[in-house]
Design a protein around this nucleic acid. Structure first.
Length: 303
DNA sequence: TCCCGGACGGTTTTGATTTG
DNA sequence: CAAATCAAAACCGTCCGGGA
């Protein structure tokens, strides 16, 4: 019995071409090999099948297929077609029926602004097999956790994206100033003096800092504001602002969510915003489920 | 870990044969 | 005789296993 392990299966591809062409030279052309190469392959095939397969015609010109060869043609061709389909088959992901759990790391701004949209839309976007866990992004370990596959996707600004990761821009964000409705300051547009005189709540995602992004901008202007509170979570701030006379400088999309309870103002100075990115390990680049997640987030981000 | 040698499968070159 | 065609010979690069 012939053991497939013992033979070079590529020979069967050549045999397919040989049988189709009934001509070594043309088969070689089709296979992108030279004629002698295919000639030796034919010799090996004759050995394996114990049959001449192609017989030089009596006329001396051209070859005729042996009976065995004629029998082989059809099933061999079909088998190769099937094999080709097996190899070509791209894994796919159907969010309605497939099971997959994702872990998304993000700070609570990104989670609130973009993540919550995904949470709300999930029943419409995917079946019950798709589950998503949101975890806090703790900066230093992100690269290794992505690398290890503990986290599927990281949502963060450019400085949070590890250089070794693939990344996709989700949206540009700028900052606005937020105060409670009925704040004693009134609702006039902010000027720099007023801004600096107010009591500020700073969100320091790394924790504990009283000197943030905005303070660096003010430094450059030779000004200073009073940061009286520093918290690590964005989501604490709206509730706090609603109950006090503190103000805070927050990402615009995040602030917009509380427009009913809070008043929103432009910054009284030019300040750089940031760009939110999704980042993932190169390994996940072609994973269809991962592609679905990325595309879904990108679509939600541009809504 | 490095190096050597052989197996393997390819190419180029050459030869043999047949035909129009 | 030129063109077409298959196959043998010579050669070459790559891979892999075994020994230092």
């Amino acid at each position: 019995m012939i053991d497939l392990r013992g033979i070079d299966l590529n020979l069967l591809v050549s045999l397919d071409a040989l049988l189709a062409e009934s001509n070594v030279t043309r088969a070689a052309l089709r296979l992108h090999l030279t004629q002698p190469a295919v000639s030796t392959q034919l010799a090996r095939l004759r050995q394996i099948f114990g049959d001449p397969l192609l017989i030089p015609a009596e006329t001396g010109r051209g070859m005729t297929r042996s009976t065995r060869a004629l029998e082989l043609m059809e099933p061999l061709h079909l088998a190769l077609k099937n094999l080709e389909a097996v190899v070509r088959h791209q894994p796919s992901f159907d969010p309605q029926t497939d099971r997959r759990s994702f872990v998304i790391a993000a700070n609570d701004n990104a989670t609130a602004v973009l993540g919550q949209r995904l949470m709300e839309q999930l029943p419409a976007l995917a079946g019950p097999g798709v589950r998503i866990a949101f975890v806090v992004a703790d900066q230093p370990s992100m690269a290794t956790r992505l690398e290890r596959g503990e986290i599927d996707l990281l949502l963060g600004s450019e400085r949070m994206v590890p250089a070794s990761m693939k990344a996709r821009k989700l949206f540009d964000e700028h900052f606005v100033v937020v105060q409670r409705k009925g704040h004693p300051r009134g609702t006039a547009a902010l000027d720099l003096d007023t801004y600096c005189a107010l009591s500020h709540v700073l969100v320091s995602t790394s924790g504990g800092s009283f000197h943030g992004f905005m303070d660096e901008h003010l430094d450059a202007l030779g000004r200073e504001r009073r940061v009286v509170l520093s918290v690590q979570h964005f989501t604490l701030v709206p509730e706090l602002l609603a109950r006090t006379d503190y103000v805070s400088t927050l990402p615009a999309r995040f602030a917009e969510r509380y427009r009913e309870r809070l008043d929103i103002f432009d910054l009284p100075f030019e300040a750089r915003g940031f760009t939110l990115f999704a980042a993932w390990p190169p390994r996940s680049q072609a994973d269809p489920a991962h592609v679905w997640l990325r595309d879904t987030l990108a679509a939600l981000a541009s809504m």
